[in-house]
């Protein structure tokens, strides 16, 4: 009997040890990675699925502020702007409000205050805001010094904080666009990116979303020049990238002001990323009207398009009326 007990005990010990060894070998791997190609394409790429809420803030009452960084823009007013980017940017956002804007409205379906992982708010939580009037909060020419010819990411963030202090703003409902002057090329501009958004900390300790917006037309066709046929719209093809990229970054800041705690898909792509550079078919970049003025834009991702399948849209008045 005792011999039997000994054998049984040893067998149990070996079995436990065997399980302990086997467990790591059975551990699951992450799903295969998928990523949008970001190249001119003919339809929306559905990899990554719908956007899902990450539990962080969204922008519920958007206001945009521009800082024109550096004396290269001019000393007392903007005088060096060969493509007219300042005027076009201001016009774009000054028209993005109310019922005359059915473009950015697609982003109002996203919300905060719901469970992490939510893909359809269906009226729950607090939605992304759609301004009832001009969301352009202010502009400032910071000509106190020349902007560096190759500013670092830290220097761009510091300029955003400086502008926030100038405007007296902070928090996730504001976004500061740092406009770099013609000829200033931060590392990676044109080759790795056209623009990017991030967040930093304002002087008062609050969060501060901001965008690095280089002089887009310096990148030419790589960042959207002549991407959309203009027809009789009055849009200047060479300037299309200014509003295509500007709208992309604005929408992504609305839905994910503190990346990536807002709305992103399973691969980490945001709303604009999923719909970038679509040249034909559903979600193709196009000329749209905002309160009577025409602008080139790329589409934005809509989770409730196609009965919840999701897709890229440039017009949205409701879940059942979008294209």
């Amino acid at each position: 009997m005792l011999r039997s007990a000994l054998v049984a005990g040893s067998a149990a010990a070996l079995a436990v040890a065997g399980l302990a060894i086997a467990a790591p070998a059975g551990a699951s791997e992450l799903a295969p990675h998928h990523m949008n190609a970001h190249a001119a394409k003919t339809a929306a790429t559905a990899t990554g699925g719908n956007l899902a809420y990450g539990g962080g803030n969204i922008v519920t009452a958007p206001t945009v502020y521009y800082v024109y960084w550096g004396s290269q823009w001019g000393t007392s007013s903007v005088t060096n702007d060969p493509s007219g980017e300042v005027a076009l940017q201001q016009s774009f956002f000054s028209h993005a409000y109310g019922s005359g804007d059915t473009f950015f409205t697609s982003q109002t379906q996203y919300c905060q205050g719901v469970a992490t992982g939510t893909t359809q708010c269906n009226g729950a939580g607090t939605p992304v805001g759609h301004p009832a009037s001009n969301p352009l909060g202010g502009t400032w020419l910071d000509s106190s010094a020349k902007a560096p010819t190759r500013p670092s990411t830290a220097q761009i963030a510091a300029e955003a904080v400086k502008a926030a202090t100038h405007f007296g703003i902070s928090g996730d409902n504001v976004q500061v666009v740092v406009d770099l002057p013609h000829g200033v090329v931060p590392s990676g501009f044109k080759t790795q990116y056209c623009a990017w958004h991030d967040h930093t900390t304002a002087g008062n300790g609050a969060d501060l979303p901001y965008t690095n917006m280089p002089y887009i037309t310096d990148a030419g066709s790589g960042c959207g020049a002549n991407f959309v046929a203009t027809g009789s719209s009055g849009v200047n093809g060479a300037d299309e990238g200014i509003t295509i990229v500007g709208g992309h970054e604005y929408a992504e800041t609305l839905t994910d002001p503190a990346p990536s705690s807002g709305w992103v898909d399973s691969t980490g792509a945001e709303t604009g990323d999923k719909c970038a550079w679509i040249s034909s078919g559903q979600g193709a970049s196009s000329i749209i009207s905002l309160n009577g003025a025409n602008f080139a834009v790329q589409s934005l991702w809509s989770n409730n398009f196609g009965g919840g399948a999701g897709g890229c849209v440039t017009s949205y008045t409701s879940a059942s009326n979008q294209h």
């Binding site: 990523m35 970001h38 790795q192 958004h197 991030d198 790589g222 992103v264 980490g268 604009g272 990323d273």
Partner: peptide, 18 residues
């Protein structure tokens, strides 16, 4: 683990990943 590429607008013809 793949992470957020959406913070930037990549130029046409560039395949990004993070």
């Amino acid at each position: 683990a793949p992470t957020n590429t959406g913070v930037m607008t990549a130029p046409i013809g560039v395949t990004p990943a993070m």
